[in-house]
């Protein structure tokens, strides 16, 4: 496996695993078809991320990214946390194999989604149903990232819309 030592360390001993009571914001991205699913929950106090937890279904890189992105966001202001990027997460992990870059995208996306959810709630957008957070998120379920250039694909497409490499295998197309 071509993972860095930092990735393996975070994979073996991930930080901030779990769930929380009454989170202030929840962000969930990915789906099992793409291979990864990530859910980040935040508690916000004085405009700072006071507590953060994640749940992830995914490969070693996805788990390491979840651990790293939650570490990076913890204690940060909302503003600062919104500036955490896919690239900064991957860099902090000592890099990721090319075909795993999409995992770092999921990490920052899930975090930003959780913050967005927090902001939505703060502005008084009342959730109609207790499970609406999942509805809100499911619009992103179709997203897959190119394993070669980690471009966010608009839909499930056979070939990356940017680099043209196959994102999925079609054996008899």
């Amino acid at each position: 496996m071509q993972y860095s030592e930092i990735v393996m360390e975070h994979f073996k001993n991930p930080h901030n695993i779990g769930t929380m009571e009454n989170p202030d914001g929840v962000g969930q991205v990915g789906n099992p078809v793409c291979g990864d699913m990530m859910k980040i929950m935040i508690k916000v106090k004085d405009d700072k991320i006071d507590d953060i937890k994640f749940e992830t279904f995914g490969c070693g890189a996805a788990i390491a990214v979840s651990s790293m992105v939650t570490d990076m966001a913890k204690g940060k202001t909302i503003e600062e946390a919104m500036h955490i990027t896919n690239k900064s997460v991957a860099d902090q992990l000592g890099g990721l194999p090319k075909n795993k870059m999409h995992c770092s995208n999921l990490g920052a996306d899930a975090l930003h989604k959780a913050i967005q959810d927090y902001l939505d709630r703060k502005e008084g957008r009342v959730r109609r149903r207790p499970d609406e957070e999942l509805e809100h998120i499911s619009s992103h379920d179709k997203h897959c990232y190119c394993p070669y250039c980690d471009y966010d694909q608009p839909e499930q497409v056979a070939h990356c819309v940017r680099c043209g490499k196959p994102t999925v295998e079609h054996d008899h197309d």
Binding site: G35, N99, V168, E169
Partner: peptide, 12 residues
């Protein structure tokens, strides 16, 4: 798994 395959697709 798709993740391990590099092609992002589960076993056909």
């Amino acid at each position: 798994s798709a993740c391990a395959s590099g092609s992002l697709r589960a076993s056909h």
